[in-house]
Amino acid sequence: MRILIVTSRMAEPLINEVVKEIKESFYSKDLMIDVVASKVPVAALMTTKDLDDLMDGLRYRLKLYDAVLVPGLLIGDIEIVCKKYDLRRCYKGSKYAGDLHKVIEALLNGVELSTREPADNILLRDEENVSRRFFEERSLEAFYIKNLKIPKRSPPLLLAHEIVIKGDLDKDLKMFNMLYDKRYIDIIVVGTEVGSDRPEYIRKIFREMIKMSDKPLAIDSLNIKEIEAAVSEEASLVMNLSRSFENWIDRLNMINSDLAYIVVPENVGGGTAIERAEACIKEYDYFYDKGLRKIILDPVIPPPLFGSIEALYSISLIKRRLENVPTLLGASNIYELIDADSVGIITFLTAMAIETGASLMLLTEESWKSKGSFDYASRSVELVHRAVKKRSPPIDVG
């Protein structure tokens, strides 16, 4: 195989060194690797236009190569450039030179990489999917939301990530675009601000989101017109249903009778674990009698110092009584409302979600200190999945 590696001007010496090591490690006369550098100084500043300009100057040489790798940090999707020059195996490589060896090995083994996502992300996801698939194959199905199997209890623990839209289509879609292809994101929740009344905007943004992703989409709004608009554009899950809003059901069933609902209690008494669990079970019975079958119970976790431990324990109590009904742990109410590192808190809550049997964990990135929480949660889920598989504490799991 003959591979062309595209890099930046400043990285070229390092890439040449790495390529030399790769050639020596594979001991294959059939492997030939050439390196070409763009005029752009660093890979993170390269765009598809820069790649197009470089490929145009090499167009007569390109047919010599079986595969082309470009920097993983290059901005944008390179698919159009690849098609323009008839490059059938043209992908984004790794973000860092040290991972190039794994990328070359994957190419030689026939792994399909991406024109949009760095190769190291793809390879890491493949490694992580092993533990996820292990639990998915063994989990008991409660129901499906779109194409997503909701387990009766974790593992696997599913992640729902909520973004709050502001009304600027370009900015809101950019926020969605950054989210939808991240690993371990199972459901994307579109939240609206308090007092929002923009059903036509909701309709428009859901229409665009559905084109971009096949993940289930949820709507979190207190405005029935916005919810109807989202459901009419294929939202599969409605957040925060309680008896105060039970009049939603008939209106929404006329649009989609197969909706799933997150059901929350309106009154948890003194907020003890037993009272909160009883309140959730009563809500389940009430809405089941109303004809709903796809119900996920959310005991609504309050902030630290206001009953969060009782609420976490209530999930375990709910699962003892309703073992076939999925539950949700709203992690953001804890890590968003404490001035401490979100990384450790999210990892702890991930372990608690699986220990209590929650099927789903909800996350946000609303405060400045919680930025990156979606990625932290993805890593935490993998850590805890591996630990459960090994039957060990979440430490030293590889």
Rank of each mutant, 00 (worst) to 15 (best):
K319I: 15
V70A: 13
R391T: 04
L179W: 02
L62C: 12
R153T: 03
L140T: 03
S8F: 14
L45K: 13
F348A: 05
V343N: 06
T47Y: 03
H101V: 01
S380E: 02
Y284V: 04
R61I: 06
E117A: 09
S257E: 15
P71Y: 08
G269T: 01
F287T: 02
A142P: 07
R386S: 00
G57K: 07
E234W: 15
V263F: 06
S25C: 08
V343R: 09
T327G: 10
G98H: 01
M46S: 11
L124M: 09
I15L: 10
F134D: 07
K225H: 13
S342N: 13
R153V: 13
P13R: 04
I281A: 07
D52N: 07
L140H: 01
V381N: 11
W368T: 00
C280T: 05
A160G: 03
I80R: 11
L124G: 03
L87P: 14
L87W: 08
L58P: 01
T47K: 09
Y313T: 11
V231Y: 00
G93Q: 01
Y288R: 15
D50Q: 00
M55Y: 09
L158M: 03
K83F: 12
I219Y: 03
S242Q: 05
Y376M: 14
I33T: 14
K290G: 05
G271S: 10
Y65Q: 09
D172T: 05
V42Q: 00
K166C: 02
G357H: 08
A218E: 01
D258V: 08
S244D: 14
P151R: 07
